[in-house]
Design a protein around this nucleic acid. Sequence first.
DNA 1: TCGCAGGTGGTCG
DNA 2: CGACCACCTGCG
Length: 276
Amino acid sequence: MSELRFDVKDFNPEHIFESGQCFRWTREADQSYTGIASGRIVNLRFEPKSPEGGVIILDNALSTDQAFWFNYFDLGTDYGQIKSRLSGQDKVVAKAIEAGAGMRILRQDPWETLVSFILSANNNIPRIKKCVEALALNFGREAGTYRGRTYHNLPTWEVLADLSEEDLACCRLGYRAKYLIATAKEIRARGIDTLEDCIHGLSGVGPKVANCILLFSLARLHRFPIDVWVRKVMHQLYGFDEKDTKGMTEFADRTFGPYAGVAQQYLFYYMRTMNQ
DNA sequence: TCGCAGGTGGTCG
DNA sequence: CGACCACCTGCG
């Protein structure tokens, strides 16, 4: 284990980790974040060097995982360019970008993302985190120990597919447990490779969850998930009727084009931070 | 007690 | 289609 460093621009851990796209990163007392992704336990701290950039320091990372983390944090994408493009297209988003200037869209593991967002339905972020952790602790393989804490992976679909709702009762997932089991069985039958094709048919995966998976794990940056917060933004700041999902989607496509999903992420974070 | 939380699935018209 | 509405659970 060693330390990995990345010089980056447009990076702010709080904007990235507190924007509801991931559920397994925890803020430490020193403002760093510890998390687990694809079985890798790591602590991230960020040292700003200039107004735009700084250095990411990953503790407990393997040197052979440099490519993994580069991809995970989408470091190959120029968010400065995306931001200036979006800002030029829309005043509201320009404001939201100021508030969340260090936002990035992660490239998470598709299965972990699928599980997390099935659990997100009609749920709140603290409890989604609890559900994910309970699932990992009770049914996932141990991934290792770091700074006195033991971490577990999420269970694979092979494991979940053979569990019953009763088995999962200890995780307090509520009615989402049966979605999870049904989806695990479906993935076992079809395989994860076809996820993008079959995603819409999966149990517990409606349009919102499907868009989240495509955006937060498969880098489909044009996907525009509409949750209660984005709905609130679209209503309050753009004047849409709260129920007009179709109108919001068409507006996002038309206005933000290939980066509608990135715009959504700034708007989501903006709305959440405004409402505190 | 009740509404709400990063919605989905089932049932109607 | 579109409009309802039930739904596990924990919190304020």
